[in-house]
Nucleic acid binder design. Structure first.
Lengths: 359, 359
DNA sequence: GAAATTAACTATAACGTTTGCGTGTTGAAA
DNA sequence: TTTCAACACGCAAACGTTATAGTTAATTTC
């Protein structure tokens, strides 16, 4: 076949090459492929056939440059080896792909510098907008200049889960306070009397809010909150590495107080508390009820299976992506400062670490 | 300040704009910023100061177009809500970032069509090379045309974990056979007599290999393999959704045979087997020893903590990224067909579901 | 003091697209 | 025959860079 000789397989076809081979101009090829009425049917046929034969696909980079948009979303998260975040990513991916967007993932590893670096690395035209859950270190330093600057540059940001009141942008969160209320109320309703909470230091916004919900519910039920029933884990940015330390803290906590229910602010704390309690011969849920936050594999496969708050990460991902893409595609229409905050509902998934209420 | 008026904050600076403001040519600006000796020190100072003031960053897309390389890697995996894969991704990310590359993630959801779509979506110039772990459906269909085509187009692929012998490209794997041998041998050494394996259907290459290692070890130890001790899970592409079915299959398996040790080909199978066994009043490890494959959160936090094979996902990720980037950057030097297969070593992490050998 | 050299820039092309506008053929209306 | 749409196409600019090849003017060389 003569044609085969002209184009080596390795060479990926461009408009220019097709034009040269077919002896027409580049614009003719372009227009033919896009079905412009300026081009005769005959030529269109010819061009399309050729393009198909050589599997022509317009070069994305060139398009990005021309259109000044990349159809790519930058997602920056603290960790990726993490059930909740991956669930969110999968929601983002699905929705974004559906609308023709790609997703670049950047990991901050909970580090401020990494977060800044990632932001800068991608803000040079590589992406159209960001989806971010901010790093713990950033939360501590309260240094948000990088976020402000990207927004000032005209790159929209959508935050989820770990969200900043100080920054105005679209946000997707769970109603942490209300959800904690639900969880703690459930514990109260099933006759728990000494309800403890295992939470994070206050600089982690979600931890703080969940603690607030806990307190609020106690008060509403006329139970005097007891400071010593609140364990704030001192976690130095990475829990996984400090498992023994975590166990130790929880052990001391359980030993000093008489506790019959625990609300843990994440899965790991819940699971670890259960492990420690088991070693101390607590029966779950008879002696000790436990509710966790985030419905991950751990909860489902724990022994006994853990009752937990499901954050519906996939839905959160979908919502963040939707907010972002809508903003990107309606730059004119959307009121610039009309930022939205979407609250994704939560559910309590009852498994075997809580007593049923009517028992 | 006069300068501030000239450039609105929103407008991101380009060479052209800087040139106009400073009343020099675009090339002068470009060269000044790149410290060309063709430019006078005075001009360099001026340009650099201005660029810094307005936080000029070269546009990545334009660079990609010009250099015909994007410095972006495409990673296509079957699932992201999955401990092993995320570990690999984090290894890829770390290493890639270190060498100045970004990572676009695509999810096949174990679907052939999705995999093809993702490949096509990114092969249009968006990325320089792929890292892939192929979808189960692709494995079943044995249709690899999309992989062949991308390689033919000159886009290198590195495969990891689920790897195809039929495609020649760089690969990163664990020595599944040898690793299984280690695991099964450990079981034999600690006096297990009826060792079962819970594995996948043979079309999943890693499952098949692990089964081979199991058989090989039995034979080496002069134990007659018993077909009925091999349980091939019929999983219809997504285990998580079929938990009950999985439990059912395992339950029937355990009931019919007298088994005192299980080698499971992944974490979920191991954990589920333990759950079922517990319900049947087996004591672990006294009555039943269990070894899993893949060291994820489940193993670590299981009850009892699961002895398991660690695949060192992060290291695998690092290796895949290194192979790919090396190939991208040495296109001339590297012999085109000198494809490498890197074998990442595994370790058995002893926890509490196996007996110690000298007991 | 004319020719050669150098310093310091500028212009241009190219990467692969898309698009508005210009232009040379037609066939038909006037 | 002249005039004029309609048709089918090509040209050129633009997106933001960089590299190569000019272009000045000043300085050196003998």
């Amino acid at each position: 076949m003569k044609i085969i000789e002209i184009l080596s397989m390795k060479q990926k076809p461009t408009l220019k090459i097709i034009a040269r081979e077919l002896d027409v101009s580049i614009s003719t090829v372009s227009k033919a492929l896009r079905d412009s009425k300026e081009i005769s049917d005959e030529t269109k046929q010819k061009v399309k056939a050729f393009a198909k034969l050589y599997n022509y696909k317009p070069n994305n980079i060139a398009l990005s440059l021309k259109n000044r948009k990349t159809k790519t979303l930058g997602v920056i998260i603290p960790e990726i080896v993490h059930h909740f975040f991956t669930t969110v990513i999968s929601g983002i991916e699905d929705y974004a792909n559906q609308r023709g967007y790609n997703v670049i993932v950047g990991l901050s590893n909970e580090s401020f510098d990494q977060e800044v670096l990632n932001l800068e690395m991608l803000a040079n035209g590589s992406i159209d907008g960001f989806i971010i859950s901010v790093a713990k270190e950033t939360l501590q330093k309260k240094d948000y200049h990088h976020l402000r600057e990207t927004i000032d540059q005209g790159i929209p940001i959508v935050m989820f889960d770990r969200v900043l009141n100080e920054i105005s942008c679209d946000k997707v969160v769970v109603d942490d306070i209300e959800t904690s209320e639900k969880a703690v109320q459930k514990l109260i309703d099933s006759k728990a009397e000494n309800i403890a909470i295992i939470t994070t230091e206050d600089y982690v916004s979600v931890g703080k809010l969940r603690t607030q919900g806990y307190l609020k519910t106690l008060i509403k039920n006329e139970i005097q909150p007891d400071e010593s029933l609140i364990l704030k884990i001192d976690d130095h940015l990475n829990e996984e590495d400090h498992l023994e330390k975590l166990e130790q803290q929880i052990k001391e906590f359980l030993e000093t107080k008489n506790i019959d229910a625990i609300f843990a602010v994440n899965e790991l704390y819940a699971i670890t508390a259960m492990k420690v309690a088991r070693a101390m011969c607590y029966k779950i849920p008879e002696d000790l009820q436990v509710i966790g936050f985030t419905d991950g594999v751990l909860s489902k496969h724990a022994y006994p299976p853990l009752t937990t708050v499901s954050q519906h990460g996939k839905e959160m991902g979908k919502q963040t992506a939707e907010l972002l893409i809508d903003r990107l595609e309606n730059e004119s229409k959307e009121a610039e400062d009309q930022y939205k905050t979407v609250i994704v509902k939560t559910d309590i998934i009852e498994r075997e670490t809580t007593k049923s209420i009517n028992s």
